[in-house]
């Protein structure tokens, strides 16, 4: 009986988290909790049984999103990935979660520190795969002599700029799906040594 209650509790918590992710994605992170309760089809009070504060719900939702993205990136990656296939994989994962991710980068600066750290955790996972994919090229001087974090941030900057201005670049549909090939091609041309570009 106690086990059944625990299971129900866990399921409700999961339902509230999933509803929060949907509502945040559509209306932003300052959406009132009543909207989340409605989406999850639970009473308003039930939210606070599982999450004592609004920030607890926000942090838990972001951590669950962060864990999901990290899991997908790890499962798709392979130690032998080259940088082009890694970029393709990264964009593929972002397309799957495009609306929520767009909301996250738009409002990240206003989030509490702990929630923001969940975003940095996603970037850490992306960056470790990035580092593995680029290490050989860096050692063999196939890419420009630029600090690794600048290469990584150039890619993130490019992707985030298109996402943040998606209404201008792609008024309908996924901006990443539409610009994926040009973003990857442009980034590779920017980081490769001239000899490699000519090849």
């Amino acid at each position: 009986m106690a086990e059944k209650r625990q299971l129900q509790k866990a399921q409700t918590k999961e339902r509230i988290t999933a509803a929060a992710l949907k509502v945040y994605s559509e209306n932003g992170f300052s959406t009132p909790t009543i909207a989340i309760a409605n989406e999850a089809q639970v009473s308003h009070g039930s939210i606070f049984v599982h999450f004592p504060t609004v920030d607890d719900l926000l942090i838990c939702s972001l951590e669950s999103f962060s864990d999901e993205i990290k899991k997908e990136l790890h499962s798709l990656s392979d130690p032998g990935n080259d940088i082009a296939s890694l970029l393709e994989m990264h964009i593929g994962v972002l397309i799957k979660h495009e609306d929520f991710y767009k909301r996250l980068i738009k409002e990240a600066v206003y989030l509490p520190e702990e929630a923001r750290n969940a975003f940095i955790a996603i970037q850490s996972t992306v960056s470790i795969h990035f580092l593995h994919a680029l290490e050989k090229d860096m050692n063999e001087e196939r890419i420009k002599d630029v600090p690794f974090h600048m290469i990584f941030n150039t890619w993130m900057g490019l992707v985030h700029y298109y996402l943040l201005n998606s209404d201008l670049f792609a008024p309908r549909g996924s901006v990443l799906a539409q610009y994926k090939d040009s973003l990857i091609e442009c980034f590779l041309t920017l980081i490769k040594n001239e000899k490699e570009v000519k090849k």
Binding site: I120, S124, S127, F152
Partner: peptide, 13 residues
């Protein structure tokens, strides 16, 4: 090294 964050922000993360 990988994201170029300030030491304080990196330690918090």
């Amino acid at each position: 090294k990988t994201q170029g964050l300030a030491a304080e922000a990196a330690e918090s993360a």
